[in-house]
Structures are given as C-alpha cells and as structure tokens.
Simulated assay, not measured.
Amino acid sequence: MPDCSRPNRINIDLGPYKQRWVAYCALHQLTPSAAFRQVVAKLTENMATAGDAAAAPPTTRKHRKEIGLTDAELRFVEACAEAEGFSPTRWIIALIQARMGNGAQFGQFELAALGKSNLILLTIARQLRQIAGMQQGLAGGPMPELLPVVAEVRTRIANHTAEVAQAIARNIERWHGK
C-alpha cells in the first residue's frame, strides 16, 4: 500500500544498479534520496525554467464533442475556415488553441506565404553575396552596376516585410475577434 502521508515519495527498484548507486552516494557523502533529488533537478532544470505548464507532458488524448450550430453559424464557420485555409473542424480547434494562449494558428494561406517568404529570403541572400563580391572588386570608386542590385534588394525586403506584417495582422485579428 502506498505511503499517502508523503505524496512526493518515489520508490524505485534499482535492480542491478543498487550497489553502484549506494557506492556512488557514499563516495559523494550523499544519502541516496539526496543524490536522486540532484539527478532529478539536473534532468528537469530546463523544464522548470519554462514554467510548470511546460513541465507537464502534453495530453495527446482527443475527446470527441458534438456541437450544434445554426445554419448561419455553420455558414460562418465554413466561410471563415475556407477563407483562411482550414477545414471547419480544424478552424474551430485552432480558435480554441489560440484562446487557450497557444498563440495564433496559421492557416494554409499563411503557411504558403511563409514558404514563399523563405524563397524570397534565399534570393535576398544570393543578391547580398553578389553585392559583397562586387564590393571586393571596388578599387577606384562606386560601381554603377551595384546600384540596381541594391535597389532591388531594398524593394524585395520592403515587400517581404509588408507581406509578413499583413499575415501576422490577419492572424491577430482572426483569433482575437477584432
């Protein structure tokens, strides 16, 4: 029968490790319990800094709930879900997760925009390498061919920044009901 007076107690059968554990504890002048607490503290220290919620393992069990929607509510959910790249069920789940504090959930359109963003960033990086190469060849003054490359990079960065800002704003508006 478990000892209910000490709810933080853990009983472990160490099997073949018992003698080595006792020897380790004696060598370091620790009781087995104190040494075990040190091991647990070390193994969980990163989890503790993220907060108690992060320390608890996430629940993967799903619970099925049936909800009744009016025709207008169903049309609204379906329209929102379609416009934002979700199935109606996934849209409702994403809404719940956002309200639980798990952050805005990106739909398929936002994910596609982020994928496009990665391609744009790769292009920008390639162009910056070109600029760096041109700078190395600079001996007597500015190179006229450098100006259009820099202008294109600036335009791409500005367009990219605006697109990402719009995606973020759409997510904030969607999940906070504004």
Rank of each mutant, 00 (worst) to 15 (best):
Q38H: 08
V39S: 07
A41H: 06
K42A: 15
K42P: 00
L43N: 12
E45Y: 03
M47S: 11
T49R: 14
A53N: 08
R61Q: 12
K62I: 13
R64K: 08
E66Q: 11
G68T: 10
G68C: 13
D71C: 00
D71G: 09
A72C: 14
L74M: 08
V77Y: 00
V77H: 04
V77Q: 08
A81W: 01
A81Q: 01
A83R: 10
G85K: 06
F86S: 00
R90N: 03
W91M: 10
I92K: 08
I92L: 13
L95R: 05
L95V: 05
I96Y: 09
Q97K: 09
R99V: 08
G101L: 00
N102A: 07
G103W: 04
Q105H: 13
F109I: 05
E110T: 13
E110Q: 11
A113E: 01
A113M: 00
G115I: 03
G115P: 00
L119N: 02
I120D: 03
L122G: 13
L122C: 11
L122S: 10
T123R: 10
A125F: 09
A125I: 12
R126S: 08
L128D: 05
R129I: 14
A132I: 06
M134D: 07
Q135L: 12
L138K: 13
G140P: 06
G141K: 01
P144E: 07
L146N: 00
L146H: 01
V149A: 04
A151T: 12
V153W: 01
R156T: 09
T161S: 14
A162E: 12
V164A: 07
A169L: 05
N171L: 03
R174L: 09
W175L: 03
W175E: 07
H176N: 11
